[in-house]
């Protein structure tokens, strides 16, 4: 019992929420939360078009393009996000030309590497959702579009994509939830997002409990909002029977 009580007393003094609700620790955690949300927003905006392009590659009539899309998705999905982050932060910058390197180091290179890794990773997963959404639209729709004289891209844009959206958005939102959780891994390369700041507060104050409760609640609330958005969408725009 003795070591147990000693450990309890040294590691977990009385829970004091005031510590993370105001003051310097609070500011650190909030700045981390802001950066996490920025990572989420920037990555989301960048990965959506990239994912659409990859999904179209995988559905294109040309075998070489299909193969390229498939290689992109499989090679990215089967490697952990952490390895992507390490690669884009430690490995890749040496390949960039001098001018790009100077610009990167003048900017926030950690955050930029994290955004590159997150965007590539998320778009690989999102492209699969978009692809299966497009395939859920019956092939005759596509054939009818082509028969009316539309090209491949025009048929996609005007006939297929509007119908595929209803099928695609819910899984895309669930990928966004994964992206939100993935932003925490940027800690590894020293991006000062929420998880990083929680660890900073923990090591500065030894108040691990308070810092982690704050971070957990922050992650949970955003996750709750994202999940709520998914069920709202499914309720508001159900898949129409074709």
């Amino acid at each position: 019992m003795l070591p147990n009580r000693a450990a309890r007393q040294s590691c977990m003094p009385d829970f004091d929420p005031a510590l993370v609700l105001a003051g310097p620790y609070h500011d650190l955690l909030v700045s981390g939360l802001k950066l996490s949300l920025q990572l989420l927003a920037i990555t989301f905006v960048l990965s959506l078009p990239l994912a659409t392009i990859v999904a179209l590659l995988r559905l294109s009539p040309l075998r070489a393009l299909r193969w390229f899309g498939c290689a992109y998705v499989e090679s990215i999905r089967n490697v952990p996000l952490l390895a992507h982050m390490l690669f884009w932060y430690f490995g890749a910058p040496e390949l960039y030309p001098e001018s790009v390197k100077h610009w990167l180091y003048a900017m926030n290179i950690e955050a930029i590497s994290a955004v590159i890794a997150l965007t590539l990773y998320t778009s690989a997963f999102m492209s699969e959702d978009i692809r299966s959404g497009i395939r859920a639209v019956p092939a005759v729709q596509f054939e009818a579009g082509r028969a009316m004289g539309f090209g491949f891209l025009a048929t996609m844009r005007l006939v297929i994509l509007p119908q595929a959206t209803r099928v695609t958005v819910p899984p895309l939102i669930s990928q966004t939830l994964n992206l939100w959780k993935g932003t925490s891994i940027a800690t590894v390369i020293g991006v000062s997002e929420l998880m990083y700041q929680a660890a900073q507060v923990e090591s500065a104050s030894f108040r691990s409990f308070e810092a982690f409760v704050f971070a957990t609640l922050a992650y949970l609330s955003v996750s709750l909002l994202i999940t709520g958005a998914a069920s709202w969408y499914q309720h508001r725009y159900p898949v129409r029977p074709t």
């Binding site: 939830l177 998880m195 999940t227």
Partner: peptide, 8 residues
Amino acid sequence: VRGTPLLM
């Protein structure tokens, strides 16, 4: 648990 990152 599903709403929290594994890292947490």
